[in-house]
Amino acid sequence: MRQPYPFSAIVGQEDMKTAFLIAAVDPSVGGILAFGDRGTGKSTAVRALAALLPKIRAVDGCPYNCNPSSPAGLCQACHGRSGDKEPKSVLKAAPVVDLPLGATEDRVVGALNLERALAHGEKSFQTGLLAQANRGFLYIDEVNLLEDHLVDLLLDVAASGVNVVEREGLSVRHPAQFVLIGSGNPEEGELRPQLLDRFGLAIDVKTPLDVPTRIEVVKRRDSYERDPDAFLAHWSAAERKLSNRIVAARKALAEVVTPDSAIESATRLCLALGSDGLRGELTLIRAARALASLEKKPEIGVAQLRRVAPMALSHRLRRNPLDETGSTARVERAADEVFGG
C-alpha cells in the first residue's frame, strides 16, 4: 500500500474537486456520483480526499465512531453507557471506507462474529463497512458493476442514516451516516434512473483535451510514481492549506446567510427544468451554501448557484427524446434564462 496522491496536485477536473470539497464541508448534500472517461483520476481524487478531511472526535473504542457531544445519533452501546458524564473520547481520522468489488453482504452490513462463534460458541455482532463509514465517506468504484441487491441496500442505509441488521439470529441497529461516493464508466452500463436521483451531486468527468494540461498531468503522475515521498513533501504545504480551508468553511457554514432571493432563483431554475420532487432545490441550496462558505462569502449569491447548478441538477432531468443536448448544457441554458444571461 502506498500513500495516496495529494488532492491539491490533481490537475484540472475543477468540477470533481469542487463537488468533493462541498461534500467535505456539508455532508448533508448527499452522495456524489462521478461518471466519466477512464484514466481521469476519479479514484485518485477520492483516496486523496481522505488525507484532507479534518479529524473527528469519537467515543473511545466505539466501532461506530460515535460523536460524544451529540447524544442523538449514538449507537446502542454508547447510549446505554453515557449516563450523565461524557464518555472518554479520542481524535481519529475521518473514515473514508473503500467498498471493494466482490464484497459480500455480511461484510457490508455486519454479521455474526465468526471467530467468537468458532472459538467460544457465542453470538456477537461483528460490525461491517457501514459501521466503519459512519461520519465519513463510503466509496464504491465501478458502482455500476456492484450487484443490485447491495446497491439497493447501500442507498437505503445512506438515505436513512441507520443500519438495521436482522440476520443469523442477531438484531442490531446502529447509526450509519456517510457520504456515498460512486464512480464508474457509463460504457460498463448505465445506472438505473431511480438510483441516479439518490445521489446529491453528479459530475461528468472528462479527459482534459489541451496538450499543456495533459503534459502537466503526466509529469506530476510520473514524478509521484517515481518518488512518492519527495512528491508528497513538495505538496504538503498546499495540502495543509486546503485542509484548513475545509475546517474554516465548516465552522462558517452555519453563518452563511441564505437570502430568499436565492431560494426563489433555485426554485425557478428547478421549475424551468421540470425536475421531479424537491430534492433538487434542497441540494442546490445546500451545495451553494457550502461553496459560499468555502469561498468565504457571507451569503449565497448567483455565482455559487450557477456554479453548482449543473452538478446538483443534471442527473435529475427527464430525458427529452427530441432534445439531443446533454443534460449539463440544458441546466446551463436554463440557468442563463433564470439568472439573466
Binding site: 473503500d98 471493494p100 468489488l101 466482490g102 459480500t104 461484510r107 462474529n113 465468526l114 465501478e142 458493476l145
Partner: peptide, 25 residues
Amino acid sequence: PSGIAARIASALDAESVTIERDGLT
C-alpha cells in the same frame, strides 16, 4: 467477464487486493 476484469483492474491500480468477504477484512 467484466466483473473479473474490474477486480483485476482495481488490484493493478491499488497495487494491493482488499477483500471484505465472509466475515474477513
